[in-house]
């Protein structure tokens, strides 16, 4: 603790320089970074190749000259998340290189060839990642125009499903689950369904029609009058056995529930799916 003292200071105490000529000047005190701590996790360390322990820049000989860029075929194997991560890894490396090049420019170093080469490889990586992602996007967009082909396929499948015998039915059901996902994006485990969109609605309609038709042809006395009216009647066929689904539909018909208007379909589906997920979580617990 500091203590102030106002007691008179002894006369012997010197508080003025007597002779300016006889003063011995002291050398300037250089500032030092050791006076404050910088966390090794400081985000700015990401601009240095070795973080905390790196020097200001790497000499050209220390740069990686042997590696090559990723090829398009190698990148096409990777998921979006992987490509996203790879993009940022490349970006960070490029940031480090850019910092080094800027530093060397300021100390007038002329030989930037190695740094440029490495940067060019990283840029190529990033361009290729972008290209792969856009390839996938354009093919996804083009598929939307192939309405007739998809429709034909679905009709063929419908015929096959309705005409299949008991042995084949198991196979066909498996195939149907895969078809649901392939064409309509309906996940096999319903709790995984993230987005409610037009494809989902169409898919539920298709599956509902298919299964209900088959059931009715097999059991004409069930009392179910086709066609099914709207999403509310089609949905049970997606995650229940046909017999149970038919029972539910008949019950709904007895209650005379009106057909759901189009604007409310999405809301209805999101609610149903949320309920499903909640019930599954409860079951797990």
């Amino acid at each position: 603790m500091r203590r102030f003292s106002t007691t008179t200071i002894a006369q012997a105490r010197k508080l003025r320089f007597e002779s300016l000529k006889d003063i011995k000047l002291r050398a300037p005190i250089l500032p030092t970074h050791k006076n404050f701590d910088v966390s090794p996790d400081h985000p700015l360390w990401q601009f240095f190749p070795n973080g905390n322990e790196s020097l200001a820049y790497r000499p050209a000989s220390e740069l990686d000259a042997t590696s090559r860029s990723w090829t398009m075929s190698e990148l096409r194997h990777k998921s979006f998340d992987d490509l996203h991560k790879l993009w940022y890894v490349n970006l960070k490396e490029r940031n480090i290189l850019a910092k080094e090049m800027w530093l060397l420019k300021s100390i007038e170093q002329v030989n930037m060839g190695q740094y440029d080469e490495l940067d060019a490889k990283l840029v190529l990586n990033q361009k290729r990642i972008k290209q792969v992602l856009l390839e996938r996007q354009t093919s996804y967009e083009r598929v939307k125009t192939l309405d007739t082909e998809v429709k034909e396929y679905l009709e063929d499948f419908e015929q096959q499903y309705l005409n299949a015998n008991e042995q084949e039915l198991l196979e066909m059901n498996d195939k149907l689950v895969r078809l649901q996902y392939a064409i309509f994006g309906i996940q096999p485990t319903l709790s995984d369904i993230q987005e409610v969109n037009e494809d989902l609605v169409n898919g539920i309609g298709y599956v509902g029609r298919l299964k209900s038709q088959r059931y009715v042809t097999e059991n004409p006395d069930c009392g179910l009058e086709l066609p099914l009216k709207g999403i509310v009647e089609e949905l049970p066929f997606l995650f229940k056995q046909p017999s149970e689904a038919v029972e539910e539909v008949l019950a709904l018909r007895e209650q005379q529930t009106p057909m759901l208007p189009k604007p409310e379909i999405f809301e209805y589906l999101t609610n149903v799916l949320e309920d499903l997920k909640a019930s599954e979580i409860e079951q797990d617990q």
């Binding site: 500091r2 203590r3 102030f4 003292s5 105490r13 010197k14 508080l15 320089f17 005190i29 250089l30 500032p31 030092t32 970074h33 050791k34 006076n35 404050f36």
Partner: peptide, 19 residues
């Protein structure tokens, strides 16, 4: 030189203090 005890130096940046 003047043995000024109990001084307190408030630095704008401790880096300037030196070793």
């Amino acid at each position: 030189e003047f043995e000024l005890e109990n001084t307190e130096l408030l630095w704008e940046n401790l880096w300037r203090k030196g070793d």
